[in-house]
Amino acid sequence: MSNTTRGFKWLSGPYLLWCVGFTVIPLLVIVQYAFTDTTGAFTLSNILAILDPIHSKAFLFSLEIALGCTVLCILLAYPLVLVFRRLHLSRGKFMLFVLILPMWMNFILRLLAWQMLLSNNGIINNLLIRLGLQPLAVANTWISIMIGVIYEYLPYMVLPIYNAITDIDEGVIQAAQDLGADSGTIFRKVIFPLSIPGLKSGITMVFVPSMTSFVIADLLGGGRLQLIGNIIEQEFNRSMDWHLGSGLSVALMVFVLISMAFTMKSENVVEEEGRQWRVN
């Protein structure tokens, strides 16, 4: 690092203060709520409430939805990215454009539109009946929740994988081809391994929100199916038991941290590579 840029590190001062004030302290506050009861006395019951049958059922259901959503997003994302690469749409920002644009239709309205599409006498079923086909009965089931979370979070899986794959030098792929690899082998031995950093960040961006998205479960699950997010939300806005809500949140956070620690293990290596210009 040169002398001229060494002083730069103080520029992050305001941000670090902000981090402490609005990231670190709020987390300490929620932890404090989680470990106390309404009288302020220490208790573990709020955390252990996750084991309560209603809560653990919602937690397991959340886990199923999140795992299913993550896997399906991966399975949808790779072909999509490869198609983009194949059709030479990878240049420019077309991919970003196509995936981000839907975010500009309001989040709640998007979900209401899916409600209308999927409901028993909704648009899709009307179409199916007109075509003389069997109507679907997915409204208010886990399937429609799954469609909702995949719809919402697919872009967060596609974009990092896409970035990782477009970063691969075309020469490396040609070298593999030159050495006798067919397109399947090229994917398995070159493209996929080199996309893993992107895949990892995709997983972290999709898994957590799909587990907790109470609005999606609310609107597409018909109120009967509850994610852990719904339980927490209700503790705050209906039961008004903030301590219990905080306890469940902290339990969720710990779970998320542990599972992310597994996926993110080698993240530091990736970050290190991006820092080369500072190495003088």
Binding site: I30, P209, L257
Partner: peptide, 10 residues
């Protein structure tokens, strides 16, 4: 990384 709901509540 944190769930939105946890960030919001905290």
């Amino acid at each position: 990384l944190n769930a939105d709901i946890v960030t919001g509540i905290a």
